[in-house]
Structures are given as structure tokens and as C-alpha cells.
Design a protein around this nucleic acid. Structure first.
Lengths: 344, 344
DNA sequence: CCTTAGCACTCACTCATCATGAGTGCTAAC
DNA sequence: GTTAGCACTCATGATGAGTGAGTGCTAAGG
């Protein structure tokens, strides 16, 4: 990326900011009228023409103003936007909301999605934290009837699964409690392979115990196999308000991206291993399905133990100066929760 | 609702079905050409005029074909649509999908939403089953660090909440297990009031126990207070494909209805007490926000113990003949899961 | 050499006009 | 009660003129 003169940078910055705010192509007159600069429209036009030649700006048609290209947005985000944080009062307000609810994963995810949608005025997404390899932390069996029980499994990364188990033989709560205790001893912090081959595999077990061990193993395997994560979403309505989605088929793409998770999964998988806030503008040539959209994503969690992703999705014409600090701040909050869950 | 002659019913049925299929106003020629009937267009026109006078049909403008009014749709749904079920093969396919995954609430809800969206080609919604009054079934404390623990609460209706608890004094897992056991004895199947005033309130408790009891009480109270339910959604994309949402502002309403839960909450609250599939066409004059949409909803669960709602949302021009049997069938499946969770 | 005034040019957008045709209601004959 | 005939309505789509924001280019000025 070449170096621009400071005047070119200034003009590029104006075009980007103005277009983000108004969604209308920006012309030389608007720039001079609204920002002064002590230049004539003609001079600005020359600079605009230069910026267009260099690929930072685009024209929708020959006699229209300029709009930023993806390259223009990228230059803006990486070079022109001072690294802002949310205002302290805003930070306080958000922290307050999180501390209103208990230290509860589900609630925090929901809240994170809502706060991001609100603050960045975009669609938001939040995945649950997940360990690279699932490990059982604790299990519990609760009697439902003679022949059914609820098997509750708590995993190392804080996720919980509950399933109804049909018991091979009628069994009461007392017996189930013994089963739970026994299996907790045998399976404490085991991963899928360890459940299959560890002490639980060789010890002599009752029919029920054997059955439950199988279930645990299956569940762990399933969790490892499926990269799928629970994704909380919110704020779709904000995207819908943007003028670029006046024709439905544009908007349909957004919904498709959000509902078919496959694309998001693959992007999320990459962001997980990154540091800090990642800004993906116009698909970056790698994801065609989002070539008109931008993602601002950040991993959160505890490196190597459990992590997830928070972020927002919007048109490339996104208020980056709000989205980026908002995502950064929410990721930090979510990390603190995960740290708690790992006893840090 | 007056009685129509069988020929009028036949013509009304044709208009409704044809319009649902094509989204194009239906004229006399189309009816005669495509359905024969042994009548001339003029005769059909007379009948159409009659049906319009009686309020079953509408014209978008004076020289256009007819489209069904809400009243027309209602007559169709209640009188003309034979009570169909899904085809046995379709039922088998769906059942099979549910039995592929374990008897697991989260998975079943997700699956139910996906299956409904697919089958009814509409947006679907599924709420978790919820008891009218929350009761604790079981709690478990799992050590995270000296001073933090994970409190897992399992409730009677099968819902689970986990939260991180900051311990007043450093405590190990052994001690936490004792706390869990003790509190399970004291609190077994207690509701909020019973936790506050029952044995747990008077017994002499350690600081940790007192703290946890407070947390349990707060959580139960919160669950009772908030009528809010977790709502799984899916299939928004299907709604987006319908031609009536070619202009975005129409579609914006749908997203608003689905994202702001308040309206849905109130409708769901009513459906919960109904029997069988409820069809709400065009807001029924009571919910202005959905006057262009229809809901097909059904309660499921165990009466008085825990219930929820499954259903679909789409334009009034909805494929009722698929949506209704699909909702009915999925509700039945979800009920069977809840019955299991109550040991029936 | 950079800046700017002047000017011709482009092109999306709006608005009005017009032709088309699907569909209607009415009347009179069967 | 049914239907052929006919005048009428009106959304839709195409065509064309006028408007104006914005451009690029050229030549003059600091």
C-alpha cells in the first residue's frame, strides 16, 4: 500500500466518513463546502481523480461523486482511524449491564449480542466459548422415573449438556447418585479417547454405568467432531435500515450468511487464532459471499483452554469507529467471564 | 360466518389455493382455463363478485383479479381444508431425524425449528418448555478455583442454569460437594417462596450455604418474574423469498416482530392455554403489528407442568396445508420429549 | 509546478405521456 | 340461472424530455 500525501489522506478520510454517515456518493463540492480545507473544488477533484486511479475510491457512474472502495476502507481503518476506545461513560454503562446479571454464560452471550448490536448499530454475533478438545468436568444423574433419568454433563469449557437417558433397568435416585459419584471418580476431566480407553473402559461396571459411559463418550466425540458452535445473533434490524439493502436480494444475502452457518464457521475458525480485533472488509477476496459486507470480529477467552468469537456484520459502509472499539470492549468482558470459569 | 353454496366454496378454494401458489391475483379466466368446472368466465365472475360482496375476497384495484381476504383465508382454513396430516413418509423422515440426536432439549428445539422452517417453508419459532412456577430439582457445585465455583441448577421443567459464584471463603471441592448435598436435601423441589421461607431459611447454614441459597432464590424469582422464554428461530430466509416482501419495509416488520419479542410473548402466552394448532390470520384484529402475517402455532408439553410453543410465521398467503400438519406433528414430537422429562 | 476558473459533457433521476392488456361489471339474449 | 358481447378501468412498462450534481480537461494565474 503506497504512501499518500497528508492532503490525500485527509480527503480520503473525509470521503469515507462522509459516505459512512450519509450513504450518498461524495463530490468535490460537498467536501469543500462542508470541510473548508482552503482548497477549490477543482483541486479536490484532481486529488479525487488520483485516489480513484490508485484504487482507493470508486464511482458508481461517470458523473457521480466518489465512494470508498474496499481498499479505501482498509486504508482508512488501518492508517487513518486513531485507535479509539468507547467513551468512559459508555464503558461504564456496558460494564454495569453485565454485572447486573450474574456471572452466567448464557446471559452474558445474549447481553453481548444485544450490546454490540446497539453500540455498533449492526447485526451482531457471539459464539459460546469452546475448548479445542472437549473434557468432562462433572456429571450428574437425576431420576425422572423408574426407567428414565436426566444425565447432566458439565464440561471443562463451561458448556453443559443435558439428556434424557432410558435406563436398562428400573433404578432409583439413590442408586443413580452412586453411579454419578463412581463415574465422576473414573472420568474426572477425561477427553473422548480417555473415556473410551481409560479406567472406565476396563473397570467392572454395572449395566447402567456402562450405558452412561457410552453416552458420555458419544457426546464428547460429537463435540469434538462438530466444529459447529452455538451462535447468538441480534440486531438484524439495524442492517435492514441501511439504504444499501433497499432491494431485498441484497438483504437476502445477509440472512443467508447468518442462517447458513458454514461460511461464518470458516471465518470464525480463523479469527479464533488471531490476536485482537480483526476487520474483514468486503470478503478480502477470499469469501465471495460477503463481498459487500464487512465483519469486525474478535476472539475472546483463554488461549488454549476455551475461546469464542464476538463481532458484528454490516455493509462495508460500516461505522468502524464505533464497531471496532465496541467489539474490543465486549471481547474483553467476555474474556473475563471465561477466566473466571477457569479459576483465574 | 354464512353458509356458501358448494360452488362458491369450490371457487373460493380455487382462488385461495391458486393465490397461495402463485402470489398473483386470480381472475375468472384463469379459473375456467385451469380448472374447467364447466362454467363460463361470466358465471365465475358473478360468483366472484358475490364472494367479494360478502368479504371473502378483495381486489387490489378495480380491474385486477381477486385475492383472498383474511376472512377468506379463515373460511378456507376452517371449512375447506380437510384436516390433513403429513405424508407417512415425511413423518417417518422427521421422526428419524429427531431420534438421531439423543433425547436432548437444546438439540430438539433446534431441530424442531429447522424442520418446521423446511416443511412449512416459513420462518419458524420454538420456545423452550417452561413451568408456570419454577422449582429447583437439583443443584451442584463444582470447584473452579479456591474462591470460585460453578453453581449448576437443574429445574423441574428441564431447564438448566449455570453461574459462576464467588465464594466468601476459600473452599475445595470436597466441601462444595457437602454443601451441594446438604442444600439438595433442604431445597428439593422448592419454589422461590419455599426457598425463602422453608427449612433452608431457618436451618443454621454456613456462609457459603447461605450465599448459595440466596442465589437459588434469586434465580427462581427471576425465572418466575420474567415471562420471557428462550425462542429459537429459523427459516427467515423463506419469508424473504416471498414476493410480498419485495419492498424492504414490509420485511422490516417481520424482523421487528421476531427480534422485539414483546409481541410474540403476548401471543405465545395465549396459545399456551389453547388446545391444538392455532391459526392466527392477519392479526385477527387484535395485533396490529402482524396484520399482514399469519401465525400457525401449537402448544406442546405437559399440561400444568411445563409447556412451550412451536410454530411458524409467514405472510397471510401461507401454505396452510403444509404448515398446519407440520406444526401439529412437531408439537407432538416435542410433547413426547417433555413427557419423558417428567417421567411419563 | 501547483492551483483554480471556466466550460462542455455525462448520466442517473423524475415526471409526464402513451399504448397494452388482463380483468371487470353490466346488459341482453339463450 | 347461464353466457356472449361490450364498454370501461387501471396497473404496468416503454419512451422521451428536462434537471442538476458532478465530472474531466484546458488554459490562465500565483
Amino acid at each position: 500500500m503506497e504512501q499518500l500525501t497528508s492532503r490525500q489522506e485527509e480527503i480520503l478520510g473525509i470521503v469515507v466518513r462522509e459516505y459512512i454517515a450519509s450513504a450518498v456518493p461524495v463530490g468535490s463540492q460537498t467536501i469543500v463546502r462542508r470541510y473548508g480545507l482552503g482548497l477549490s473544488p477543482a483541486t479536490v477533484r484532481n486529488e479525487l481523480a488520483f485516489l480513484e486511479r490508485e484504487g482507493y475510491l470508486l464511482q458508481t457512474h461517470a458523473s457521480a461523486g466518489r465512494i470508498p472502495s474496499d481498499k479505501g476502507y482498509r486504508y482508512f481503518v488501518h492508517r487513518l482511524m486513531q485507535e479509539t476506545e468507547l467513551s468512559p461513560s459508555e464503558q461504564r454503562m456496558i460494564s454495569h449491564q453485565f454485572h447486573q446479571v450474574q456471572l452466567e454464560l448464557q446471559q452474558w452471550m445474549k447481553l453481548a449480542a444485544a450490546v454490540l448490536a446497539q453500540t455498533a448499530r449492526s447485526a451482531s454475533l457471539v459464539t459460546a466459548p469452546k475448548a479445542p478438545q472437549a473434557r468432562l468436568k462433572h456429571l450428574e444423574m437425576i431420576s425422572l422415573s423408574d426407567v428414565t433419568a436426566l444425565l447432566v454433563m458439565v464440561f471443562q469449557d463451561g458448556s453443559i449438556r443435558q439428556q434424557v437417558v432410558l435406563l436398562p433397568t428400573p433404578t432409583g435416585q439413590d442408586e443413580l447418585t452412586k453411579v454419578s459419584n463412581h463415574l465422576n471418580e473414573l472420568l474426572g476431566s477425561a477427553n473422548a479417547a480417555e473415556v473410551r480407553t481409560g479406567p472406565a473402559a476396563t473397570a467392572s461396571l454395572t449395566a447402567i454405568e456402562r450405558h452412561v459411559v457410552d453416552r458420555v463418550a458419544e457426546t464428547l466425540e460429537q463435540m469434538d467432531r462438530r466444529s459447529e458452535r452455538e451462535i447468538h445473533r441480534d440486531g438484524l434490524i439495524h442492517v435492514l435500515r441501511q439504504p444499501e439493502f433497499a432491494q431485498v436480494d441484497k438483504f437476502r444475502q445477509v440472512v443467508e450468511v447468518l442462517e447458513r452457518r458454514s461460511l461464518l464457521e470458516s471465518i470464525i475458525a480463523e479469527v479464533l487464532w488471531a490476536n485482537g480485533v480483526q476487520v474483514i472488509i468486503g470478503g478480502e477476496g477470499r469469501w465471495d459471499d460477503i463481498e459487500d459486507y464487512s465483519l469486525v470480529l474478535s476472539p475472546y477467552g483463554v488461549r488454549g483452554e476455551a475461546n469464542g468469537v464476538v463481532g458484528v456484520l454490516g455493509p462495508t459502509r460500516m461505522p468502524y469507529d464505533r464497531a471496532i472499539p465496541a467489539v474490543r470492549f465486549v471481547a474483553r468482558l467476555m474474556s473475563s467471564l471465561v477466566e473466571h470459569m477457569y479459576g483465574y
